[in-house]
Structures are given as C-alpha cells and as structure tokens.
C-alpha cells in the first residue's frame, strides 16, 4: 500500500504524566517532552483521510472519521475496506477526480451502507480473505433514520462489520434538517425556533446505541471527538472482535449547531461533562464500562455555545425548557452511573 502507517499500540498512547489545561480539566500535551507526547501530536501519524478534502472549518465528522479509520487501519495492518453512506463525509471526501481516502472505499446509497458492508464482508469470506475487514460509516441520518433497517439487519445477522455513526444530530449535508438524533429544543431547518414549542419537540428521537445494545451484538460504544484516545482505543477494541459492532461518535457540526469552528472540541467535551452525551461501552447486550464525568457542568454551559439553542436564552430570560434538558442529563448520569458517589479527585 502506498501509505505506510506507523503502528502505535493503544497503551503507548496513554500519557504517564498528566497536565490539565487551565480551566478546562483537559489533559494537554504542550508541557510534555516531545518523546513522551501521545499519538495526537506525533509528527508521523497516519492519515486514512488525507488533507485537501472539502469539510467545513472545525468539522467534527472529518476529525472523528480520520481518527476512527486510522485506528481501524492500524488494527488491521491496513487490510481494511470502507463503505460509506451518502452524506457530508461522502461528499466532502470524494470530489472526483480527487479522493481523500487512502483505503479502498465504496459509496452506494444513503440508506444501505450496512447491507453493502455485509456484501463486502461476505465476498472476503468466500474468497478466504477474512483478514480483510470491513467498516461501514455514515452520519446520523444515514444510520438512525433511512439506513436503520439495513443496520438492524446487519446487527441481527451478526455480520462481521464495524458500523461507525458520526452523529452530528441532524441532516447537515442537505442544510441542517431534523433527524431522529436531533435533541429536544434544537433549532433545525425543519424544526424552526418559533411557536409555543420552538425547536425540536420533547419526547421524540431514539438512542441507536441503546437499540444496538438490545441486539446483543458483541460490541457497542459511544465516543466523542473530545477524547480521541478513547475513540482510538474503542475502534482498536472493536477491530479485535468478530461480528457486528457499532460505535457512535459525537461530532459537533459548527454550521448546523451554530457554534464557532474553534469550539468543536469544547462543545463536544461539554456534551460529555454535562451528561448530555453518555460515553459507554457494551458487550453482548450489557454495559461494561462508562466514561465518568470528571467535573459535572450544568447543561446551560453546553447549550449557550450553540445558536441552535439560542431561543432558550432570549433577552436574558432562561426558558423553562432548559430545566427539562438538565433533567435529561441527570437521567443519563443516573442510568449509566456517570458520577461516582465520592469523587476521588476532590
């Protein structure tokens, strides 16, 4: 293959020394000697998705896809094929005759990535090339809505496919419309911030990670671009397992969420730290690990960075619906045990 990729074991990616960035409780690299720095700062890190693609500045999906596919390629010694659903990731990576993908890549339709991946995996099995693994990827629209039937079928058959959903909570490629992954109250092009119940309504939407767990497949995880080492670890773990696997990554969309491009990581981190986006792993139908919240922040801190929630804070007035959003966070924290009763760091 044309792109030699440095193999770095996940345990090497974990820093021995920890420096927290001021005011954010994030582990940083800048104060560490270069030799001790983690993969993120390595100069010869690989790029399954090379530069020159046309994603927006600060695109969470581009970042998530690069780290996820890089990790999957490392885990498979580059013997990897990607199937892509229609969507932003497909459009911005392959403006032919250019392509950003450094691995064999197939785009068929919006709603069939999981099934196409099943077909690729079947071809590899019949050709006795099971060393070649298959990743299917799509946005939340292509996964939780239009691709859901194919996804469930792939899960149920336990086909040897890792499906990665880059969840930016809406149809961003078509101009920010609501999907079944759009959170309550969020303004989209089809859930306008007007009327008595502005934005997306409460009581709708679905959690595909939970549904994936209910299929009893070998591995399910949620991840975030705010913790790329955790994402890499999960992808690596997923590739060590055979059968149907699902990883859903929270990837903020600066355009669709109305957040500053330089705030992508911050917004993603706050989504985790307030309990809005629980990060967990499940194996064979049981939750096995959760990412604890280091220091809980109120949901307002997460909401206020995004214009899609701006109608909740009109004229300095806090909308009562913020309390309901906080309740969702609290319920997530309780359900997954995201906060220990006694925090040892305190």
């Amino acid at each position: 293959m044309s792109n030699p990729i440095t193999t770095i074991a996940p345990e090497e990616a974990v820093q021995k020394l920890k420096y927290y960035q001021k005011g954010t409780f994030t582990v940083g690299n800048r104060l560490v000697a270069e030799a001790d720095r983690s993969v993120q700062a390595s100069r010869d890190r690989s790029n399954a998705l090379t530069c020159g693609h046309r994603a927006c500045q600060g695109c969470g999906e581009a970042l998530g896809a690069r780290y996820a596919i890089d990790a999957a390629m490392r885990a498979t010694n580059n013997n990897l094929i990607a199937v892509n659903a229609t969507g932003c990731l497909e459009v911005f990576t392959t403006p032919y005759p250019e392509t950003s993908w450094q691995l064999p890549w197939l785009h068929s339709l919006f709603g069939n990535a999981a099934a196409v991946a099943t077909g690729v995996a079947a071809a590899m099995r019949v050709k006795r090339r099971s060393d070649i693994r298959v990743v299917a990827q799509g946005g939340d629209g292509g996964t939780t809505d239009i691709g859901f039937q194919c996804l469930s079928g792939m899960f149920e058959r336990n086909d040897d496919v890792l499906y990665i959903c880059y969840d930016n909570e809406g149809y961003m490629n078509t101009g920010v419309q609501r999907s079944s992954a759009t959170p309550p109250t969020a303004r989209t092009a089809t859930t306008a911030a007007v009327g008595p119940e502005p934005g997306n309504v409460f009581g709708t939407g679905k959690s595909v990670p939970r549904i994936a767990v209910a299929h009893n497949i070998p591995y399910v995880a949620t991840a975030t671009v705010a913790d790329l080492h955790d994402l890499e670890r999960k992808v690596t773990k997923a590739m060590s397992v055979r059968g149907a696997r699902y990883i859903q990554i929270d990837v903020p969309c600066p355009l669709g969420w109305g957040a500053a491009s330089h705030d992508t990581i911050r917004v993603a981190r706050l989504a985790v730290e307030c309990g809005f986006y629980p990060i967990f792993e499940a194996e064979h139908g049981r939750v096995t690990q959760v990412r604890k919240i280091r220091r809980q922040v109120p949901v307002i801190d997460y909401l206020k960075l995004q214009r899609r929630f701006a109608h909740l804070f009109k004229e300095g007035q806090e909308d009562p619906r913020v309390v309901r959003l906080q309740a969702i966070c609290d319920a997530n924290i309780a359900e997954y045990g995201l906060i220990d009763a006694v925090d040892e760091d305190e």
Binding site: N79, I81, N84, P95, Y96, T99, P104, W105, L106, H107
Partner: peptide, 10 residues
C-alpha cells in the same frame, strides 16, 4: 487494500 480505489464518487 493492496491497491485502494474509491468507487461511487459524485
């Protein structure tokens, strides 16, 4: 994987 190509471009 030995000679990667992209199929299904816009």
């Amino acid at each position: 994987p030995a000679s990667p190509i992209s199929i299904g471009a816009m």
